[in-house]
Nucleic acid binder design. Structure first.
Lengths: 211, 211
DNA sequence: TTTCTTGTGTAACATATGTTACCGACGCCC
DNA sequence: GGGCGTCGGTAACATATGTTACACAAGAAA
């Protein structure tokens, strides 16, 4: 665990020792649940490797993608949930292979005043998560679906490092909270405009896709 | 300032003394700006009396209401902004007469480890703000405009304590990020259904409005 | 091979929301 | 009173998105 912790997070040495002592390295496979609606959260996940996505559901069961977390990031909503022993209002799912360090909830608060680098990390995370949520709101409130779809595909490309995005129209529709037919329609338009190529379960982003 | 601080926030005595020493009581009138886009934030506002609303704008100038803050609440986004000396990405406006205590940014961090009641307050605020943002996302993503309009009117009633909501169709349209014509249309439908009465700059919510 | 499941393409239609234009009502100020 | 700006009502139309239905293709399973 040593190197991975050292690498990305830039914690002070004493804190890294504590993390090694109390943190638990966990692995997840694609689609496995890290957090779920209504479950109590007893640890905060630090992403070591891979990506996870965070979703929100409403009363009617509609789900929407909030944001992705990748290396060295964390879900700060989990943080305040832990402190107040609340149930999770979001779901977190591994997107591909994922490794996290689970920090037990009783350490979170203890470290806050003990290690400045921990406090900074937590505060920075809060800020980043706020930004993500604001970006989501902006996207949903002001952008049409085709723009959101393009942004979605770009994000997938960024996270995977490949311009071949693996996803069915169904999945995309779910994460953007719309229907499959609509996504197929918009994708087809993008294809006709020479932006992408469509295959079964795969979408190839071509040059000039971002334009 | 004494009583007001004591009342709502439930801080420990030593912290209240510090707040009295370093906090600055400020008053705003309806419509006055507390924070604005792109401005650096050097203090965190604790709401003592009245209500303020927090808005977000996108690149094209479209604005949307994020949430309201009232007594004993605070904008925790300001908190992390202060720490990292960032510019504000939101705007805060007084809704009616408003009193806040402005906490200077250099105290925020200092108090965090010094006063447990401060830390708890900050963490609780983070959590509440996350909840508000998630509620916003849910509302925008899953609910039709008529539902959002009803929720908006209810919130206005809750905050003002009066079932006579003072607002022009224009203002409402702005805050819900739509157009005046659309709001007029929906309000008229509500009136025809016996839920509300429409006057110039005023909307009367009738019995059974929530149903 | 056949069968089954899942994914995709497409049409036709329903609905919500955005847009433009115009009119009249109200309140304010001179 | 008369002029003026803001506000609200309404129609007509444009567009984006949601919905349903059906056909076919690709791959998995039998």
């Amino acid at each position: 665990m040593d190197e991975s912790v050292n690498l990305a997070f830039q914690f002070e040495p004493a804190l890294i020792e504590e993390i090694e002592a109390f943190g638990e390295l966990r692995s997840f496979k694609d689609g496995e649940l890290i957090m779920d609606y209504g479950k109590y959260i007893r640890m905060m996940p630090l992403v070591v490797k891979g990506t996870l996505k965070v979703l929100k559901k409403d009363d009617n069961g509609n789900e929407i993608l909030l944001y992705y977390l990748s290396s060295s990031e964390t879900c700060s909503m989990a943080y305040s949930c832990c402190l107040e022993e609340k149930k999770s209002v979001v779901k977190a799912i591994a997107e591909g292979d994922l490794q996290i360090i689970a920090i037990p909830h009783n350490k979170l608060d203890e470290w806050l005043c003990k290690y400045p680098s921990w406090k900074n990390y937590i505060m920075r995370s809060f800020n980043e998560r706020f930004s993500e949520l604001l970006k989501s709101i902006e996207s949903i409130a002001f952008h049409k679906l085709d723009d959101r779809l393009i942004a979605y595909l770009k994000e997938k490309k960024r996270l995977s490092g490949s311009s071949l995005v693996k996803a069915s129209h169904y999945q995309i529709a779910d994460e953007l909270a719309t229907s499959r037919v609509v996504i197929s329609r918009l994708l087809k338009i993008l294809e006709n405009n020479g932006k992408i190529l469509l295959y079964r379960n795969e979408i190839k982003l071509l040059q000039g896709f971002d334009a």
